[in-house]
């Protein structure tokens, strides 16, 4: 165990850094995707609602490992071989970010949609009755209240996404799990290696969820 830490510790920490980078990139784009599809899901327009629903259904209905293979291997093959004439190659980090963003984005869209729907419709009506436009009312009145109710589920989704980065080891991105596989292969100390990796995830996620709790408490000023 001690040997793994001294010899491979730096390597594992670097891999953890890449895991966090991937998770942050994925989450960033997932928030944008989630906000767009979440709002498409609540506005009064059948076409938008259906588009949002299809997106969510498709992404939720496909395991992320399949999505990862599809984006990393399938898409370049589609452009280079099936259509032909292209020479696309997608770096694992890009492919991984796309997968996480799509996967997490679909769940975020549902969280945001549910959050907006949980706000009393009277709030929107009152804002509209004063002359505010739909988007003004959404921005100033509905979303701020929706976000408060969403925070616990958001944190949950962040944690899931952080852990989901491990699935992307299958497309060769050198995040924590992928790196740990190499450590195990070099040292044959599987018990120690995976225990260390598990503890690393545990520490990061505990720190994340604890600090999120603090944020949650701060945001609750003036709430019933």
């Amino acid at each position: 165990m001690f040997r793994i830490i001294t010899v491979y510790g730096g390597m594992l920490l670097e891999a953890l850094g890449r895991t966090l980078l991937l998770a942050l990139l994925g989450l960033f784009f997932a928030c944008i995707i989630g906000l767009i599809f979440g709002i498409l899901g609540v506005i009064k327009n059948r076409v938008c609602n259906v588009i949002a629903q299809i997106f969510v259904d498709v992404i939720r209905g496909v395991p992320m490992i399949v999505l990862a293979f599809f984006v990393y291997f399938g898409m370049p093959y589609f452009f280079n071989t099936i259509i032909g004439g292209f020479n696309v190659s997608l770096p694992a980090l890009h492919a991984g970010t796309i997968c996480l963003a799509l996967n997490c984005g679909a769940y975020m869209a549902e969280i945001i949609r549910a959050g907006i729907l949980s706000v009393d419709p009277g709030q929107m009506e009152a804002a509209r009755s004063l002359g505010l436009s739909y988007s003004q009312a959404m921005r100033k009145v509905v979303l701020p209240q929706a976000i408060k109710t969403m925070i616990p589920t958001f944190i949950n989704q962040f944690i899931i996404t952080l852990k989901d980065t491990s699935i992307l080891s299958v497309i060769g991105f050198p995040e924590l799990v992928n790196t740990a596989k190499n450590v195990q292969a070099n040292t044959f100390m599987s018990f120690q290696t995976w225990a260390i990796v598990g503890i690393m995830y545990l520490i990061v996620i505990t720190v994340l969820s604890r600090s999120a709790k603090v944020v949650e408490r701060r945001l609750n000023v003036g709430r019933e």
Partner: peptide, 8 residues
Amino acid sequence: QHFNLFNN
């Protein structure tokens, strides 16, 4: 009827 003050 239900006031609908902005709670935030």
